[in-house]
Write a protein that binds this DNA or RNA. Structure first.
Lengths: 332, 332
DNA sequence: CTGAAAGCGCTAACAT
DNA sequence: ATGTTAGCGCTTTCAG
């Protein structure tokens, strides 16, 4: 059997309480005893049980991360930020993928609560809103990433998707484009909707005729959608709601015998690692995914420690990065 | 406060024991009482505490995943397989990134054990071997992915890296190549070493002069290494130890004014999602990462349930996929 | 078929 | 400064 605190106590000839004290670095333990206990711990290779401690203290050193799909290249970086920050603050991290299924999302949230996590970082779909509203009256802190949910008291960390899209369009316009198409993401994803709105408003503001093709946030979707966009609209520029879509479109554009950026300039969104590996390299709106993750955990930590005063929404800075797919390199 | 089993018991006018029985689907509870309890549970919105249960039963429904870096595109798919299988079997999953740092690896293993996980899926470096050996006498089951560690009793799931590399070289030779270079991975990664050995043996067996350039498993490494490989060896073919390296090399080869596959044919390893998105698309040795993950969890589950008879090493099938970077498409 | 009671490994008053 | 004693929320004998 694994040694328990009692085994240590006996071996060190002290009480459980004293062992507990040295475990928790309580300063008022006589140095000599402290050493005796420490030695017993070493000798027995004793490791305290985190769950027993959680149960006793009614606190938790576990937090949860619920996201759509770690396989989508946008998320690993975000997840890494969350994980690094979590470990830095002493938390262990649970993880679950929902595939944007509201039922699964709900199931996992409750499952994590049953695990007694101290808080949850949630990347939710629009359809998951109902669930999140239910959660309003539970005591488990939640921080939302990449969107907020009005009417709930939960903190959120994100970028201004609307403005990002708006700026991408303006950028194209400034470079002389007027036929700018948009490959939109699924309508159950908040950020996709916001980017679409930003695109449309920017086009209207400039008096240009917009063209939107709605799909999923995948490479394949980009491949499949772009053909008809070209046929029906003859764009000279394309703003895709995420990089995967942009990459798929670029591949198909090339296969169809057109050139990027000469015939069609492309801007994506996310700045996933692949965007610098593609040919041509992809211009994109860079999202500070890692920092979003770190910030989310910090907010969660604040809430868990009760260091909070009302709901907080943090808007991170995005940045348009011009790589080859948009015809030039003015920065980086 | 959150309702406890006692609250439910009182409301249903029964004892805690009875509530526990209906929770655990014990059949010998009178239907009428069962319903009364179920109703109380609903009304109070009661959720049992998993950690309290774990403590009481001395079992655990948590498992851990320790991997180098979720940000490396090979791992998300593996992780997804692990996660899906874990949830399917009723486990919650902890995750930690080690960045191939043996000290961190050790820290996280012990941290997870303190969390009382029932088992761990570990993707370890060579330098982590010492730690893993220490673990031999602990009771927590461990399953290794992508490598085995001789002298330990731990199950492992992997592919035959040596043979995979050997076959890649043979494939090049069959296509008429004789100047075949190898971009190797870091020497603290077992699979990288095995691939290098496979490459070297295949070259020697064919009487060809090998050329190896050692780097890390990254895109940047591929970019930086390939230049001198070309200068010093003038290869007509390149086998890279992983896709990231291959992709980096391809980008630089193109920048230097050479063509893939006409001047230099390229084969990578892993079959990461981006290998079909690149230009040209990347020929590679496909590794069934998702299935490796699923299998690892199944082995872990077996061990945790005591359904085991000795150490098990599962070798999964790899498959060479010929895409554009190798000059043709004979399959897929 | 149900209840009482002990106990899982730890912490936290309260004593001493 | 250290020990005693209750629990934390649940399961599990053991009675009845």
């Amino acid at each position: 059997m694994k040694p328990t605190i009692l085994d240590v106590a006996e071996r060190a000839q002290v009480s459980k309480a004293t062992v507990s004290r040295v475990l928790n670095r309580n300063p008022q333990v006589k140095e000599e005893i402290r050493e005796r206990v420490l030695r017993a711990i070493k000798e027995l290779d004793y490791r305290p049980s985190a769950i027993a401690r959680n149960l006793a203290t009614n606190r938790s050193n576990m937090i949860g991360l619920i996201l759509p799909d770690i396989t989508n290249p946008y998320f690993p970086v975000l997840a890494r930020g969350i994980e690094d920050a979590a470990h830095q603050l002493g938390y262990s991290l649970f993880i679950s993928n929902t595939d944007n299924d509201p039922a699964l999302e709900k199931e996992y949230i409750y499952k994590m609560m049953e695990q007694q996590v101290g808080g949850i970082v949630l990347i939710s779909t629009i359809l998951g809103e109902a669930t999140v509203h239910e959660l309003t009256h539970m005591q488990t802190p939640i921080v939302l990433c990449d969107r907020l949910i009005a009417g709930t008291p939960f903190d959120a960390v994100m970028i201004d998707d609307y403005r990002a899209a708006y700026e991408a369009v303006q950028y194209f316009i400034a470079r002389g484009h007027s036929r700018i198409a948009h490959l939109a993401g699924p309508k159950n994803i908040q950020s996709a909707e916001n980017r679409k709105r930003g695109y449309l408003d920017a086009m209207h503001a400039a008096g240009l005729e917009p063209f939107v093709s709605v799909g999923s946030f995948s490479f394949e979707s980009g491949v499949h959608q772009i053909g008809s966009v070209i046929d029906e609209y003859s764009p000279t520029a394309l703003f895709a709601a995420n990089d995967l879509l942009a990459l798929g479109a670029m591949q198909e554009i090339h296969r169809l015998g057109h050139r990027v950026p000469e015939d069609i300039a492309v801007i994506g969104c996310d700045d996933i690692p692949f965007s610098v590996m593609s040919r041509p390299t992809l211009s994109t709106i860079s999202i500070p995914a890692y920092q979003i993750g770190v910030t989310a955990v910090q907010l969660l930590d604040d809430q868990m420690k009760g260091v909070r005063s009302g709901t907080k929404n943090v808007i991170m800075e995005h940045k348009l990065i011009n790589r080859e797919s948009c015809g030039g390199v003015d920065e980086e």
